[in-house]
Amino acid sequence: MSQTTVVTAANEPSIWGGGRSPYNVSYGKMMTWFFLLSDALTFGAFLIAYGTTRFFSAVWPDANQVFKAFPFLGEHEVPLLFVSLMTFILIMSSVTMVLAVHAGHYGDKKNVAKWLLWTIIGGICFLSCQAWEWTHLHGECGALWGAFTDVNTPVEEYRHFFGHKSLAFVDAHPLVAMQSSHNFFNYFFTITGFHGGHVTSGVIFNILILVNTVNGVYERRGHYEMVEKIGLYWHFVDLVWVFVFTCFYLL
C-alpha cells in the first residue's frame, strides 16, 4: 500500500486512508452481513422457483385447505392457526435474541445468558412445531418429496388440498391437479426444510455462545460481539420465515 495519506483541508486523514474502519463495522460483522446476503439470494432463488411453478400451473393447492390442522384438535377447520403460532414463536425468539444483544452492549453477563436461554427455548419450540407439521402432512396426507407421482392414485387422496373454486377443474383434470400437488409439496418440504436447517444450526450456535457467555469468555474478551453476529444470523432466519409464511400460507 502507498504510504501517502490523503489529507483534507482540515488536516484530517481520509476515512478510507487506513487505520480505522470507515463504516465502524468489524470484519466479522461485515462478513456476517455478506454471508446473509448470499443466503438471502439462495432463499430468494428457492421462493422464485416456487412462484414460477405456481404461476404456470393451471390449478394450485389452497393453503387454507392444506394447513388447517392443529395438534390435539383433530381435523378441525382451523386454517392458518398453527402456522400463526409458529410465526409468533419465531418473532418472540427474535425479541429475546435482540434483548440478549442489548444486554451484551452493556456487558451484562447474567442478562445475556438469560435471554439466550429463552431464544434457544423458542427455537426448539419452533422446530418441534415444524416436526409436528411435517409428521402430520406425511402421516395423514401422504405428502413428502416425490409423493403424488403415480397416475393410478385415486383423486380423493389429493382432491382435499384444493379450494372450492378449483374443485370442478380438479375433477375434470385430475392428473394436472396431482402434478400440482406433487410440485407444491416438493417445494414446501425443500424450502421449509432448508429454513428448518437454518433454525437448527442457529439453535446450535446459540447453545455455543450461551456456554461461552456462562464461562466468561466474552467477559474476558471485553465485548459480546459474537452474540451480535449470531444475533444477526438468528434474525435473518426469522426474516426468511416472514417470506416463507407469505409465500406458502398467505398468497
Binding site: V25, S26, V95, Y106, G222
Partner: peptide
C-alpha cells in the same frame, strides 16, 4: 489478533443497563 478495538461500536460502550438510554432501547424493541 482481536480486531475489536479498532471499532468503537463493538466494545461494550455502555455500563449501566438500568439507565434511561438502555430502557428506551428496550421499550423500542418491545
Amino acid at each position: 489478533g482481536d480486531q475489536s478495538k479498532l471499532y468503537s461500536g463493538v466494545l461494550q460502550h455502555h455500563t449501566d443497563i438500568n439507565s434511561t438510554e438502555s430502557k428506551n432501547q428496550v421499550s423500542r424493541i418491545w
